[in-house]
Structures are given as structure tokens and as C-alpha cells.
């Protein structure tokens, strides 16, 4: 039971506590370019989820074989191979997504988060926790991508997954699907999450203070 709970903790940690985009600000790189609509954002999120999980598992399996001095090149080669697999699969089965993601799909290789998880977590843990860590981080990343995608598509185009929401009279704020809107959306979201953390922290402190007072 406690083993399952430990795994759940790892998963939730990736999903919320250290959500890759809003918390660590790692790997915010080029992924943001494809969040101008929900479909692309979801596709990108799922690709990253797969790459990070598969790579964590590969690194965890081979962690005793890899010489520490050459570990980074080994990780990069492993990530690049998995990304190539994703590219080939998407090209074959989801040509539209493949077209729209363009070079950003290949750029998954250099997402700092994937290398960071391999180095920080997978290189030190057995395969199952590593897989769960990858799933949690990947899900957190995908969730954040979809959230940004929803905001940008709804405001910038008045649609979700190409389904119109507001009828024909809605004049979309085009700026939101342009790069400038992307930057501003993310800036506001980070501020929102900062605020949320601050409020929660204050509430916890207040609670701790009250409990402290009662015992005294």
C-alpha cells in the first residue's frame, strides 16, 4: 500500500507541485510556439509525455552500465532516438499534426526537462518509479500546454478544436494566436500560479499558528 502511495506522490509531484512549465520554467522553450490551438498543444504534450517516460525507463534500465563520464552524450542519443521514433509514427499516422508541429517536434530533443529528469531521477531510481516520474512530469507538461492552448484558441480564434463557441458575431482578438499573445498569456499564467502559491503558503502558516496557539 505504501509503495503505491509513494508512486502516487511521485506522479502528483510532477503534475502539480513542480509542474515543469509554471514552476521550474524549464523546457518552456520552443514548445510554446505550438500552443496557438488546442489540437497542436495536445499533440505536442502527448509527444513529450511519451518521450520523457520512455527515456526515463531507458536510462533507468541502463543506469548501472553507463559510465558517469559519458552519461550526458548517452542520454542525448537515447532522447534523440526516441524523438525520431515519435517523428516517424506521427508522420505515418497523424500527417496533419506532423506538418503543423514542424521542426518543434525535432526540438523535443533539447528540452531541458527531459535531460534533467534523466539526470536527477531516472539515473538513481529503479524502472517503475522512473516511469511514474516520467508520466507525472509529462502529464504536468501536457496539461500546462493544453491550458495555454485553450486560452489562446478561445480568445484568439473563438473556437475550441475548431468548433466555434461564440457565434458569427464574435470578433476574435487575433493577437492571442500571434507569438506576442503567447508570451503575454504565459506571463499572466505564471503570475497567477505565483499568487496561488503565496495564498496557500499564507493559509498554511496561519493554520500552523492557530494549532501552535491551541497546544500552548
Amino acid at each position: 500500500m505504501s509503495a503505491v502511495r509513494g508512486l502516487w506522490q511521485i506522479f502528483v509531484n510532477g503534475l502539480f507541485e513542480s509542474n515543469p512549465i509554471f514552476r521550474l520554467a524549464l523546457s518552456l522553450c520552443p514548445a510554446l510556439a505550438v500552443t496557438s490551438n488546442v489540437y497542436n498543444a495536445f499533440g505536442m504534450g502527448m509527444s513529450v509525455l511519451f518521450v520523457i517516460t520512455a527515456n526515463n525507463m531507458a536510462v533507468s534500465l541502463t543506469r548501472k552500465l553507463i559510465n558517469a563520464k559519458v552519461r550526458v552524450p548517452v542520454y542525448i542519443t537515447s532522447i534523440a532516438t526516441i524523438v525520431t521514433v515519435v517523428q516517424l509514427v506521427l508522420e505515418a499516422y497523424f500527417p496533419r499534426l506532423y506538418q503543423e508541429l514542424g521542426i518543434y517536434l525535432a526540438l523535443i530533443v533539447v528540452f531541458a526537462i527531459i535531460l534533467a529528469r534523466a539526470e536527477v531521477f531516472a539515473a538513481k531510481n529503479p524502472i517503475i518509479p522512473s516511469m511514474v516520474d516520467g508520466l507525472g512530469m509529462g502529464a504536468g507538461f501536457a496539461g500546462a500546454m493544453v491550458l495555454i492552448g485553450v486560452i489562446r484558441e478561445v480568445i484568439g480564434n473563438g473556437t475550441i478544436l475548431d468548433i466555434p463557441l461564440f457565434g458569427p458575431n464574435y470578433a476574435p482578438a487575433l493577437i492571442m494566436i500571434l507569438p506576442a499573445g503567447g508570451f503575454i498569456t504565459i506571463g499572466l499564467l505564471i503570475a497567477f500560479f505565483n499568487h496561488l502559491t503565496e495564498v496557500r503558503k499564507q493559509a498554511r502558516e496561519k493554520l500552523a499558528l492557530q494549532e501552535g496557539g491551541e497546544t500552548a
Binding site: A25, G181, F183, I184, G187, L188, I190
Partner: peptide
């Protein structure tokens, strides 16, 4: 980071 992003947007 937040204000930096908004600045980059502008």
C-alpha cells in the same frame, strides 16, 4: 519570470 514574459510579449 512573469514580468519578463510580458515584457517579451510587448
Amino acid at each position: 519570470l512573469s514580468i519578463a514574459f510580458i515584457l517579451a510579449g510587448l
